[in-house]
Amino acid sequence: VSVELPAPSSWKKLFYPNKVGSVKKTEVVFVAPTGEEISNRKQLEQYLKSHPGNPAIAEFDWTTSG
């Protein structure tokens, strides 16, 4: 189950709350306009370098507050 949070234009930000008793931590995933899922800052940096014209990296908020 995921919750969609505010994201930069043409992107989606999905929040996957951890299940009770789960060892997996809460996860935030950005979905690029191409449909590619980005789950960490390093991936995001690589994606933005190879896909010019996207929002600046500073516009991506990895917190769950939206």
Rank of each mutant, 00 (worst) to 15 (best):
V1K: 08
V1R: 05
V1H: 13
V1N: 13
V1L: 14
S2Q: 09
S2T: 12
S2G: 13
V3R: 05
V3M: 10
V3A: 07
V3C: 12
V3N: 07
E4L: 10
E4G: 08
E4A: 08
L5Y: 11
L5P: 04
L5W: 07
P6W: 08
P6C: 08
P6N: 08
P6L: 08
P6F: 07
P6R: 09
A7M: 05
A7P: 10
A7F: 05
A7R: 04
P8L: 06
P8G: 05
P8T: 04
S9R: 11
S9E: 13
S10L: 13
S10H: 14
S10N: 15
S10A: 13
S10P: 13
W11S: 02
W11G: 01
W11M: 01
W11E: 02
W11P: 02
W11D: 03
W11T: 02
K12G: 06
K12P: 04
K12D: 03
K12L: 08
K12N: 05
K13C: 06
K13V: 06
K13Y: 02
L14C: 10
L14E: 03
F15N: 05
F15L: 12
F15A: 11
F15G: 05
F15D: 02
F15Y: 14
Y16H: 06
P17V: 15
P17Q: 12
P17E: 12
P17R: 09
N18H: 13
N18K: 09
N18F: 10
N18Q: 12
N18R: 09
N18A: 11
K19E: 11
K19L: 14
K19F: 12
K19I: 14
V20S: 12
V20Q: 13
V20P: 14
V20E: 14
G21F: 03
G21S: 09
S22P: 11
S22W: 06
S22N: 11
V23D: 15
V23Q: 15
V23Y: 11
V23I: 14
V23R: 03
V23C: 15
V23S: 14
K24W: 15
K24Q: 15
K24C: 15
K25F: 14
K25Q: 14
K25W: 14
T26A: 09
T26E: 13
T26S: 13
T26F: 15
E27Q: 14
E27S: 12
E27R: 15
V28M: 05
V28C: 05
V28F: 05
V28T: 05
V28I: 14
V29L: 08
V29M: 07
V29D: 00
F30M: 02
F30Q: 00
F30K: 00
F30N: 00
V31C: 06
V31Y: 07
V31W: 05
V31A: 03
V31S: 02
A32Y: 00
A32K: 00
A32M: 00
A32V: 01
P33D: 02
P33I: 03
P33A: 02
P33Y: 02
T34V: 01
T34I: 01
G35Q: 03
G35I: 00
G35L: 03
G35H: 03
E36D: 08
E36T: 06
E37T: 14
E37R: 15
E37Y: 15
E37V: 15
E37H: 15
I38W: 00
I38F: 08
I38Y: 03
S39A: 13
S39H: 11
S39K: 13
S39E: 11
N40H: 07
N40P: 00
N40G: 07
N40E: 07
N40M: 04
N40W: 03
R41A: 12
R41N: 09
K42W: 09
K42Q: 13
K42P: 10
Q43F: 06
Q43C: 06
Q43H: 08
L44F: 01
L44G: 00
L44C: 03
L44R: 00
L44Q: 01
L44T: 00
L44S: 00
L44H: 01
E45I: 09
E45D: 10
Q46T: 11
Q46Y: 10
Q46E: 15
Y47Q: 00
Y47V: 00
Y47S: 00
Y47I: 01
Y47R: 00
L48D: 00
K49I: 10
K49L: 14
K49W: 10
S50P: 01
S50G: 09
S50N: 11
S50M: 12
S50D: 13
H51T: 03
H51N: 07
H51D: 02
P52E: 06
P52H: 06
P52V: 05
G53A: 05
G53S: 06
G53C: 07
N54G: 12
N54L: 04
N54Q: 11
N54T: 07
N54Y: 04
N54H: 07
P55V: 05
P55I: 06
A56H: 14
A56F: 06
A56V: 08
A56I: 07
I57D: 04
I57A: 09
A58P: 05
A58Q: 13
A58R: 10
A58N: 14
E59H: 06
E59S: 07
F60E: 01
F60V: 03
F60K: 02
F60T: 01
F60A: 01
D61F: 04
D61K: 07
D61C: 06
D61Y: 05
W62F: 08
W62T: 01
W62D: 01
T63A: 11
T63H: 08
T63E: 10
T63Y: 07
T63N: 10
T64M: 09
T64E: 08
T64G: 11
S65H: 11
S65D: 13
S65R: 09
S65N: 12
S65W: 09
S65P: 15
S65Y: 10
G66W: 08
G66H: 10
